[in-house]
């Protein structure tokens, strides 16, 4: 009698709790949980929505200027751009300065390395607290495989110096993305191993001193990540002759070694960074907008 009871009990226990495994039902493999839940209906599109749509068709990149919960990051804060800045910014910086010449001049690099999302940030990145006003600049949003973003859109200006600085910074941020995708390489990190300045050391180093130490400027000496990105930034910013001249002046083997590594890495991806400089110079300085 007791045994029967025990068996019965065991059966009840097992059966009763079985459904626990999937309390909410089986997972439906066909649902794309990362897809956009609500696409803006065409009837509500404004000029910028149409522009973003045609750029998505032309370049395969989703440009995001409206912030929804999908955009929110956990511990960093961004402010959405003002519409009247986002519109000319997308038209000029993203289309005319970045994507169009990139697709025409470096088709292989464009096809393989263009992020699929680009986020416009009105201001800059605010770490931990949206109300901080300290030096929390940083274009941010680069630490992801598939998307890139730029801050400072609310400061958009057709001033040549602003445009130049912004597009060069965009390639700096994109270099971080390349870094995250493929890595800088084991050997790159070994070139200046042990010589990085760290925080706050990097901020007080002059450019000439940094170049003697093997970095393009102080910030490049902050850490290997920035070292890699500043190599791309300097090759985008300065003509080939000036780069070689600075390397000669610096007499730094490390600077030359890393320059060659980064230049070759980009060549392998289909982009000659010296030609990138020429291209950027032509679209920024040789055309009036």
């Amino acid at each position: 009698m007791k045994k029967i009871f025990s068996v019965l009990l065991a059966v009840i226990f097992l059966a009763a709790c079985k459904k626990d495994n999937y309390p909410l039902g089986a997972v439906d493999e066909n649902i794309d949980f990362f897809s956009k839940r609500e696409v803006k209906p065409r009837s509500q599109w404004n000029e910028l929505d149409y522009l973003c749509d045609s750029m998505r068709q032309a370049y395969g990149i989703e440009i995001i200027y409206e912030y929804t919960p999908r955009i929110v990051a956990g511990n960093t804060f961004f402010m959405p751009p003002q519409y009247d800045k986002a519109l000319p910014y997308t038209r000029l910086v993203l289309d005319k300065l970045w994507l169009k010449p990139l697709k025409e001049n470096f088709p292989e690099f464009f096809a393989k390395e263009t992020p699929i999302e680009f986020i416009l940030a009105g201001g800059y990145i605010h770490f931990n607290d949206p109300t901080t006003t300290s030096t929390a600049a940083g274009a941010g949003l680069n630490a992801q495989f598939y998307r890139l973003g730029m801050g400072g859109v609310n400061a958009f200006s057709t001033n040549k110096a602003w445009l130049w600085d912004h597009i060069v910074t965009l390639y700096h941020e994109h270099a971080h993305q390349i870094d995250h995708k493929y890595g800088r390489g084991y050997l790159f990190d070994r070139v200046s191993q042990g010589k990085y300045y760290g925080i706050p050391g990097y901020a007080s180093v002059s450019e000439a001193q940094a170049q003697r130490d093997g970095f393009w400027y102080g910030y490049g000496g902050y850490a290997p990540e920035e070292d890699f990105a500043t190599n791309v930034e300097y090759m985008a910013d300065l003509p080939e002759a000036r780069i070689k001249e600075l390397i000669a002046i610096s007499q730094s083997v490390a600077l030359e070694t890393k320059y060659k590594m980064v230049h070759q890495k980009y060549l392998d991806m289909g982009m000659d960074l010296h030609k990138l400089h020429v291209m950027l110079d032509s679209v920024v300085y040789k055309v009036n907008y």
């Binding site: 961004f78 402010m79 751009p81 003002q82 800045k85 940030a121 009105g122 201001g123 800059y124 605010h126 006003t133 801050g151 400072g152 609310n154 400061a155």
Partner: peptide, 8 residues
């Protein structure tokens, strides 16, 4: 905007 970029 110039003082406190990101607002507007």
């Amino acid at each position: 905007i110039s003082r406190n970029i990101g607002t507007g």
